[in-house]
Deep mutational scan, measured.
Amino acid sequence: ATNIVGKVKWYNSTKNAGFIEQDNGGKDVFVHKSAVDAAGLHSLEEGQDVIFDLEEKQGKAYAVNLRIK
């Protein structure tokens, strides 16, 4: 899926990971530091509006192509 709108639920820069809550009510999506880095960002803030694509690896959904809304 592409161009999904959501809000950062939480992001821990020590653990280099967090979750994004989908505005469409879907399951929360894992976001890794690699996606944050690829977006040219240093970190994510709780409640921040984002747009992202979903990629599945080994049955788990990940946020990729992250951008700030």
Rank of each mutant, 00 (worst) to 15 (best):
S13G: 10
K69M: 13
G18W: 09
N24Y: 08
I20M: 03
V36F: 05
L44R: 00
E46N: 12
V29Y: 06
E46Q: 15
N65D: 02
V29N: 00
A38W: 06
F30Q: 05
F30N: 03
I4K: 09
R67N: 04
T2G: 06
S13A: 13
A63Y: 01
N65H: 08
D49H: 15
E46T: 15
D49L: 15
K60T: 08
I20Y: 00
G40S: 06
W10H: 05
G59E: 05
W10K: 04
N24C: 11
V36D: 01
V31N: 00
L54N: 01
I68L: 13
V5P: 13
K9V: 05
A63L: 04
A38P: 02
E21S: 15
A39W: 02
E55T: 09
N3F: 06
D37T: 14
L54G: 00
A39M: 07
F52Y: 06
H32W: 06
N3A: 08
N65T: 03
E46L: 12
A38C: 09
S34N: 10
E21P: 01
I68W: 06
E56A: 08
L66N: 00
V5H: 15
T2M: 12
G25E: 06
D49R: 15
K57R: 13
N24M: 10
Q58P: 06
F19N: 02
D49M: 15
I20C: 02
L54Q: 04
K33R: 11
A39D: 01
H42Y: 12
V64P: 01
E21F: 10
G18E: 00
F52C: 02
E21L: 12
S43P: 09
Q48E: 08
H32T: 09
F30C: 06
N16W: 10
E55H: 11
S13I: 12
N24W: 09
H42W: 11
L44K: 00
N12Q: 07
A1R: 14
Y11M: 06
H32S: 11
E45W: 15
K9Y: 04
L54V: 13
F52D: 00
A39K: 02
V36K: 02
I20K: 00
A17L: 14
D23N: 14
S43A: 11
D37N: 13
W10D: 02
D49C: 15
A1L: 12
G47E: 03
K60A: 07
E21Y: 11
A38F: 07
L54Y: 06
K33C: 08
E45D: 10
W10F: 09
D37M: 14
N24V: 08
A35C: 05
I4C: 12
L44V: 03
K9R: 09
I68P: 08
R67W: 04
N3W: 06
D23C: 15
A63Q: 01
G25C: 08
G40I: 03
K33P: 06
W10P: 00
A1S: 11
V50L: 11
G40V: 03
N3L: 05
G40Q: 07
K33W: 10
E55Y: 14
S13L: 11
N3C: 09
D53A: 03
L41T: 03
A63D: 02
D49Y: 15
N65C: 05
A17V: 15
K9Q: 03
Q48V: 10
S13M: 11
N12G: 03
N3M: 06
A35G: 03
V36R: 02
E21G: 11
A17M: 15
N65K: 06
E55Q: 11
I4H: 07
T14R: 14
A61P: 08
G40H: 08
K60W: 11
G6P: 00
W10V: 05
S43N: 12
N16E: 11
S34P: 04
